[in-house]
Nucleic acid binder design. Structure first.
Lengths: 167, 167
DNA sequence: TTAAACTTTCAATAATTATTGAAAGTTTAT
DNA sequence: ATAAACTTTCAATAATTATTGAAAGTTTAA
């Protein structure tokens, strides 16, 4: 496999993985293009490489910046803006995990808590609703906490310890 | 909050969380309905409760069965089929994690491996592609392994140990 | 058998989500 | 100030994905 083929494969795979996880294709592709680029890219270059429109590029770059994984780079002497993504996978994972937790997991945990806190009227169905949503709440909270802790830790010693422990 | 309100809130929250993670609404809602039901439900009952068509119900029940989290229940003396979902959250999480790993993560890991194994032609861009996809590969593999181990373990001692370790 | 009770399939349609492109907006150099 | 270089916005449109409903298929009881 040659460079170009490998590059295309990586970008399109990452793009379709994105859609599978609720992230749109263009956004995932822009990020992956930046991820393997050796230098910051301009909007023109991104549009050109991925064959997407200016508007699409602009909107998705904005979203990536909102997620904290892409930043504007100002290149001296250049009028236009250039973009880079976080290059350290560990840091990248941290950002994504943190944001998804904040935007998606935490609000759901809140609702599970509310639902599981309704007053028990003694009926079987109410008891079941309370029991099951409470179980889900506890699971979600534990999983969220674990994920955040793991991802926030300095890599290596922790991962190694964990892997040793659970093997 | 009364029972009915709490129930509706739970089902619709779970449904929209689903869409956010690439699982369709009806599928997530059927599962959550079964999850808090005190007894197996027939197709009629599911259609009625969620106001969705017979075809939709049938197709999504099938998918849930493919995922291994819903099973047919045969009730003696009843002609029609009844359905239940795995009621134990731990077990539910195990199934989902396992299936997502198998269907989505593993194939991507494979591609990352292929891409990161192209021959190094000495150019900077090839070196970068190899380096970055290798890092992603390693991260994905570690995360996948950890998730599977964690989720496969008997609960409690492991979770407690982990939480203690990473706190 | 056969017909009633039930489930599945799938083409048509609806709903949702992504993308475009051009107009409006902003910044910078002169 | 102004115009060129660039970015953002957003209504229109395209692409994708979910849903319906009725016909075809299957199972069971008599």
């Amino acid at each position: 496999m040659e460079y170009q083929e490998a590059k295309d494969k990586f970008i399109s795979t990452w793009g379709s993985l994105g859609t599978l996880w609720g992230i749109n294709k263009a956004m995932a592709q822009i990020q992956s293009l930046l991820f393997i680029s050796t230098k910051p890219l301009s909007m023109e270059e991104i549009m050109e490489e991925l064959k997407i429109s200016r508007g699409n590029t602009s909107m998705n770059l904005r979203q990536l910046m909102d997620w904290g994984i892409v930043t504007k780079e100002l290149i001296p002497g250049e009028r236009k803006e250039f973009f880079t993504t976080e290059k350290d996978v560990q840091e990248l994972a941290r950002h994504i995990a943190k944001e998804r937790s904040r935007r998606e997991i935490k609000p759901v945990i809140k609702i599970l808590k509310d639902v599981s806190s309704i007053k028990d009227d003694g009926t079987e169905k109410t008891k079941e609703l309370i029991k099951q949503t409470k179980a889900l709440h506890d699971l979600a909270e534990t999983a969220d906490a674990m994920m955040n802790k793991i991802v926030n830790q300095e890599q290596n010693w922790i991962t190694k310890s964990l892997l040793k422990l659970i093997k």
